[in-house]
Computed example of a mutant assay.
Amino acid sequence: MTEHSDPHPGEPSEETVELAHQLLDWAREGQAERVAAYVDAGAPVDLAGPDGNTLLMLAAYHGHAALVRALAERGADVNRLNDRGQAPVAGAVFKGEADVVDALLEHGADLDAGHPTARETAAMFERTDLLPLSRPADP
């Protein structure tokens, strides 16, 4: 073994872990250009924290529609559930984020994914106005 060998092969370096935490923080903050640049440079588009919340889930929950769109356009799974079985679209409905709901639906989000589903969440929290069939048509 040399001085420079990795004592824990297969485990990410401290720098990699720190970058992952930073990306997750930036997703919470809605830093779309910064997160997209890292994904474009090779960061996993479905990077998730220890609770299973992906970059897209965090962006959705915190109301950042532009980042949701950027990640979805780069292949993020809009229906990926976190470790609690929650879908990004249900989180966006819960938070009342109509723009995020729209962004997720534009990219194929399933209103019946997860538990509770987005439809169940909308009914529980009286936010059915966020669902497409409940909204008035655009003039």
Score class of each variant (00 low, 15 high):
M124E: 15
E18K: 08
E18D: 11
A103C: 05
E14C: 07
T121D: 06
A123T: 12
T128L: 08
A60W: 04
D112Q: 14
T16A: 15
A66H: 10
A90F: 02
L131N: 09
E106F: 04
N82I: 09
M124W: 13
R34K: 13
R74T: 09
G114A: 06
E11A: 14
N79C: 10
A36K: 10
A76Y: 00
R80T: 02
V45N: 01
E14N: 11
D110H: 02
A98V: 11
S13C: 01
A118K: 00
L24V: 05
A60T: 08
L56V: 08
A66S: 14
G30Q: 03
E29Y: 07
P9G: 03
G42N: 03
A32F: 07
V101A: 10
E120A: 13
D129V: 09
P44W: 00
L81I: 09
G10D: 12
G85N: 06
D112H: 12
T2H: 14
A98K: 12
T16V: 13
E18T: 12
G91S: 11
G49F: 06
G96M: 04
T128G: 10
P9N: 06
A20D: 15
E33S: 14
A48M: 07
W26M: 14
Y38H: 15
P44H: 01
D112G: 05
D51R: 15
A76P: 03
P9I: 10
H107A: 04
T128F: 01
T2E: 13
R127I: 10
P88Y: 07
R127T: 08
H115L: 09
V39R: 01
G52P: 06
G52K: 11
F125T: 13
L56D: 00
V100E: 02
L133E: 15
H8I: 04
T128S: 12
A87N: 06
T121L: 05
V45I: 02
Q31W: 12
V39Y: 00
E106C: 08
G75S: 03
A65G: 05
H21D: 15
L24P: 03
P88W: 02
N82A: 07
P139F: 05
P50L: 13
G52Q: 08
K95S: 15
R119W: 09
D40K: 03
S134Q: 13
L19W: 07
A76S: 15
V78L: 08
L58N: 07
E97T: 04
P50E: 14
D138W: 08
